[in-house]
Amino acid sequence: MSYEVNGATVEHDEEGYITDLSAWNKDLAALIAKDENIDMNDEHWEVVNFLRDYYEEYQIAPAVRVLIKAVKKSMGKEKGNNKYLYTLFPYGPAKQACKIAGLPKPTGCV
């Protein structure tokens, strides 16, 4: 199972998470998002970029409260809540945003 993007083949698991984290790029992210019926806007990108930065530093996806805190900081108080994250990613920020960000499927209930 794989994504085809810009002539490159990127393997993914049965749920759509890419298996080689280093193969990620923005075009691939947009393609995964399309499969998830998400049209990426600046706020989606903001979340995805935060997830990637956090993973880079800690080798793990953040806890939801950490993500919310970060969103609050960058997008303002009214958007820094779980509900807003679900409007961006209807099937859950952990599941969908991590997949688009090219991170492994979160192990915990984050």
């Binding site: 800690y58 080798q59 793990i60 953040p62 409260r65």
Partner: peptide, 8 residues
């Protein structure tokens, strides 16, 4: 590095 994320 993940030990440093435990506080979160």
């Amino acid at each position: 590095p993940t030990y440093r994320a435990l506080g979160d």
